[in-house]
Design a binder for these strands. Structure first.
Length: 200
DNA sequence: CTACCGATTGACT
DNA sequence: GTCAATCGGTAGA
């Protein structure tokens, strides 16, 4: 795999387009312990305006600061004693991001299993906090530049460029407000997609 | 300092 | 399907 990271311009577009287009791309983490990578199979968009489910809804604070930072950076937040990973979309002061909810493991499965300890393949990276544990993504990587091939980045994948019939669009999972918005994107039929079976 | 919350997960019926 | 444990991060006293 010698592809180079997606450029910043990829992230400087409509958050819905970015969430849709990240499907099929590869998330890569390089660490002294080894390299892990996975195909992105599920994302959610969090809008800059009128989206009460977004952490950016009430404006910038220390926790969500990177969400209002440069596009193509990571926004890593903690919730329920775990971490979740987003890619920041659009320019400074905007406050939109794409949550990566699930990937399909490609490289480094043994390392992922060590980090997640004894979990079966299907449970390694299905879910936003699970994939962060498998990829060793913590708050340390909050604000990290995803457009350079260092530590953590995203590459265009072999199967990127999915047709509309290969993508399902649903409500977002777990949010307690703005539940009506259809902002979750997933590769139809992929076993590593989280949520109810009927949504896979 | 304490109180509270959650874009979750895993265990359980 | 239901539900409680989990703890980092924040807000408030």
């Amino acid at each position: 795999m010698t592809a180079s990271p997606l450029p910043v311009t990829f992230y400087d577009r409509s958050v819905i387009d970015v969430a849709r287009d990240l499907l099929g791309c590869h998330l890569v983490h390089q660490h002294p312990a080894g390299r892990v990578s996975g195909r992105i199979v599920e994302t959610e968009a969090y809008l800059a305006d009128g989206d009460s489910a977004s952490h950016a809804f009430k404006g910038p604070n220390r926790k969500n600061a990177s969400m209002f930072g440069l596009p193509g950076r990571a926004y890593v937040y903690s919730i329920h004693a775990r971490y979740c990973f987003n890619a920041v979309v659009l320019g400074e002061g905007i406050g939109s991001a794409v949550l990566v909810r699930a990937v399909e493991p490609i490289e480094g499965i043994k390392l992922m299993q060590q980090r997640r300890s004894r979990h079966p393949l299907l449970d390694l990276t299905r879910g936003p906090a699970r994939l962060c544990e498998a990829f060793q993504i913590t708050r340390e990587l909050d604000g990290h530049d995803l457009a350079s091939a260092d530590r953590l980045w995203i590459e265009p994948g072999h199967y990127a460029g999915l047709t509309d019939s290969e993508v399902i669009v649903t409500r977002r999972i777990g949010v307690t407000s703005a539940q009506e918005k259809m902002l979750r994107f997933a590769i139809e039929g992929n076993r590593f997609v989280s949520g109810p079976r009927s949504w896979r």
